[in-house]
Every structure is written in C-alpha cells, then in structure tokens.
Amino acid sequence: MLEKIKNNFNTQTWVLIPIAIAINIAIGQVVVLLKLPVYLDSIGTVLVAVLCGPWAGALTGALSNIIWGVAVDPNALPWWPVAFMIGYMAGRMAQWGFFKEWWRVVVTGFVVALTAAIVSTPIAVYLYGGITASGSSFITAYLMQTGTGMVQAVLSTGFLVEPVDKITTAMLAFTIILGLPKRMVGGYPKANQVEVSGGASNTQMYIAIGVVVLLVLFAAFMLRNILGG
C-alpha cells in the first residue's frame, strides 16, 4: 500500500503539484470572469492524477482547496474532501486505461462527477444544512421547499450540475496532454497511462463534444421542468 502511494511521487510530481494547484485557482478565476455556468477548477488536479497517479491527484485536490481557502476565499476550505476524491477517482480511472480515447475520457469525467456529487452531499448537509452559498443551491432549495428530503435534494442537484463541469474538465485535461510534447510527459511516474496509440481520432472528439452539448441541454431541460413545474 505504502509503496503504491510512494510510486506516485518523484521530484517531478512534487514540482508539478504546486503548479497544478495554481492552475486550478487561476483557471477557476478566469472562468468566473467568462460567466460560464461551470467551475473548471480541477483541471490541474486531473492532470496530476492522470500523469502521476491517484494519490498524487488526491493530494493536489485537497491542498488546492486548503490553499484556496487560506489564500483567496475561506469559503472553499470545507470542500477539500470533494477535491481529494476527484483527484483520486480521476487517477484510478486513468490507471484502468480510461484516459486514452475521447469516449473513455467522457466516461472518466462522468464517474468523477458522480463521485463529487456523492462526497459533497454530507458536507452540504451537515455543515450547511443542505443549502450552501453557491448558486446551484437555488435548485436544492426549490426541491426542499417542494417536499423533497434534504439528502435527495442535495444529491439530485449534484447529479444535475456536476457532469457538465467534470466532463468538460476531463476533456480539457486530455486536450492539454495530447498537446504536450512526448519528452515533457515522459518524466512523470504514470506517463504510460496517457500514451495514445495511433493518435486520437477527431470524429471521436466531435462525438465527445456532442455528448457535452446534449448534457447541457438535458440539464437545462430538467431545470425548466423543476422550476416551471
């Protein structure tokens, strides 16, 4: 076990982690500036998870939220277990070969999203009584107001909001890895996990983007049903 954790970390990993944390935070802020309905604040975490392994990814995620909380916005602090599990799951999926083709990357993003939704539920319920200070809490609040139980309301909001964000994150991370020269990837502990055989196909990329668009439409449709009904 300890050996498995240790093999995630070489000097390159330790150097990559602070940069990845800074990437998380800086991109998170850029996306806020663009007023998009996603966070995209775990691209760095996913990069570390895929290149170095699940434990390195988990550490990056947890430290991201802690440092974000400490240096920028204290409200990010309590969510570190969510970021931890995002990094861990992304790393595990990559280990199982789910970071080599576009459709597999979409699956990774989806699994990570479900994990994030599940892990954030107890935090939202116990720490905030279900309703947090984030915008998506309006959905939770509406569901609770119309008689849904607190846990179900928080979970369904998570399942509705997370997939779009996490699949986009995974796809952006994959795009970045595809664009990196081979010799820059080679020094990381799990470089072989991202070796794409025969190049990634463009058709698949378009299908993957189509999936995300469909998900956005689905989420919008569900929202209208919830808020309109």
Binding site: Q12, I19, A22, L36, L172, I176, G179, M184
Partner: peptide
C-alpha cells in the same frame, strides 16, 4: 474562448516543471 485562454496558461507553466525539478 475557454481553450484559447486555458491552453497557453497551462502549457506555459508545464514547461517550467522539468527545469525546476
């Protein structure tokens, strides 16, 4: 406009990794 903003930022910072290591 996400990718044109994210791309340069990430690539630019990943270049430093090996040197720092």
């Amino acid at each position: 406009s996400v990718l044109p903003l994210v791309g340069p930022l990430v690539f630019g910072s990943l270049v430093e990794v090996e040197e720092r290591a």
